[in-house]
Amino acid sequence: MIEKISKYLPENSIYLVQEILEEHHILIKVVNKRTSKHGDFKRFPNGSFQITINNSLNQYQFLLTLIHEIAHFVTYKQSKRVKPHGIEWKRNFQHLMLPFVQPTIYPASVLPFLANYLKNPKASTGSDVKLTFALKQFDEISGKNFIFELNEGSVFHFNGKTYKKGITRRTRIECLETSSNRIYLFNQNAEVEI
């Protein structure tokens, strides 16, 4: 299994990932980019399990997503009736990620944000704006910006529509869709085109 995914991982993480996969037998599929998620964990009616991960992720985001999904598998095997991102999953995710939180695997510019995120991991790494921004620095250039980088009043495009950035609420940004004059709430790290 490691041969299929090693090209997507940081080189110094491959051996550690291989150890995890030898202990936890699960099918991993690398799939084309999905805008709604980086990866997922599924249990099929026949009792088999599968993890899918987007092929568009940089190596650091790919590793983080892989371990996130393996934590779901481990949590399910331990106790089938728990919340998907509850305390049991958080503990497993933290435990599985700990060996990877080191400068030989993650860049120094990412480590403090990764360590802070792992104190209380959320369902999506995208919910941590600082970690998302740190990881984005290793993406291929896309010509897009995070919405939080734009000034209030900036005009941008998202999914074929034009918006004007408004005020920032606690965790979301109000944006006016210019053709309908309707207000929409955007995640702070939504990627938009100027």
Rank of each mutant, 00 (worst) to 15 (best):
T168V: 05
F158P: 00
Y184T: 04
A123V: 10
D139S: 10
D139R: 08
K164A: 01
F186T: 03
G143A: 01
S109T: 08
N145Y: 14
L111Y: 07
T162A: 14
K136M: 07
K119R: 05
G126W: 05
A123F: 04
S180Q: 14
V155A: 11
E140K: 15
N151K: 07
V110C: 00
N181S: 12
F186N: 01
K164N: 00
V110T: 00
I173H: 01
A108F: 07
E149M: 13
S179C: 02
S180M: 07
G166R: 03
I167G: 06
V155F: 13
L150G: 14
E149N: 15
S154P: 05
E191M: 13
L114H: 00
N181C: 06
P121M: 11
G153H: 12
F138H: 10
C175S: 13
K122Y: 02
K122I: 08
R169N: 12
T132W: 10
S109N: 09
S124V: 00
N116K: 09
F158S: 06
V129W: 10
R182H: 09
E174I: 13
K136L: 06
R182G: 01
R169M: 12
N181D: 15
E140W: 00
Y184L: 15
K130F: 14
L135R: 09
G143Y: 01
K122N: 03
D128K: 05
S142L: 05
K164G: 00
N181V: 01
E191R: 12
L111H: 05
F156S: 00
G153Y: 02
K144S: 13
E193G: 15
A190F: 08
T162V: 13
E193S: 07
F113G: 02
T168S: 13
E191F: 07
I167N: 10
K165E: 01
Y184R: 05
Y117F: 11
G153C: 08
V192M: 05
S124R: 08
S127E: 03
K161A: 09
K164C: 10
I173K: 01
F146R: 07
F133N: 14
N181A: 11
A134P: 09
F133S: 13
